[in-house]
């Protein structure tokens, strides 16, 4: 089974490398045809306005809607999480895919000088994880079907809703592959563990 990383803009290569380290078969998705080949998709960090615009004009957004309804697992990090959200609280007119029952706030921790790293307890992956927050979004509302997997300062920062996974932080920038492993388990891929 093939995993895709949406490669319209952002740090998609870091996600690709993480998947490759876990021996998963992975490709960069830039077109609708690419998207049709994959069984799971990661939407990377980057600028949500840029990625959203390109996904819309290339038809990738429409195809993604179809696939998610059919049950394809998708994991969004930072900009990816913003794009999965049904609404962006502080930019209500900004386009998003609207696939997840969460409302997010963009740049919720401030501008770049406020970006930070912190050890975050995440039970589903076995405990403490070095989480890197860069001009990060915060989840301000969750629907009933949304399970909170991690919180920081009382706000959810890592959540799951059935086949959809979303986080404010960037596991692809570190060497700890447990969040990617968790996503691969969601996709049901056979892979060789690394740790």
């Amino acid at each position: 089974m093939m995993i895709g990383v949406l490669g319209l803009q952002g740090d998609f290569r870091e996600h690709l490398w993480a998947l490759q380290k876990l021996n998963a078969e992975a490709i960069v998705v830039k077109t609708v045809e690419d998207l049709k080949r994959v069984s799971g998709l990661i939407i990377p960090g980057g600028e949500s306005t840029t990625i959203g615009r390109l996904a819309r004009i290339t038809g990738i957004a429409d195809e993604l809607h179809k696939r998610v309804i059919q049950g394809m697992p998708v994991y969004g990090t930072c900009a990816g999480m913003i794009l999965l959200a049904k609404r962006i609280a502080n930019y209500p007119n900004q386009y998003s895919f609207g696939l997840m029952d969460i409302v997010v706030e963009r740049n919720a921790y401030g501008r770049q000088v406020e970006s930070f790293e912190v050890d975050l307890p995440i039970q589903v992956i076995g405990g403490k994880f070095k989480a890197i927050f860069i001009r990060a979004p915060k989840i301000v509302e969750c629907g009933d079907k949304v399970e909170i997997l991690a919180e920081y300062n009382g706000s959810p920062v890592f959540v799951q809703q059935d086949n959809l996974l979303a986080g404010s932080f960037h596991p692809e920038l570190g060497n700890d592959l447990r969040v990617h492993e968790y996503f691969l388990r969601m996709v049901g891929v056979k892979y060789a563990g690394v740790h």
Partner: peptide, 20 residues
Amino acid sequence: MEKGTWTVKTGFADMFKGGV
């Protein structure tokens, strides 16, 4: 919690990749 680390700085630059 740590701000302004090398990881946070270079990681932010990573977010610009493939962009204008």
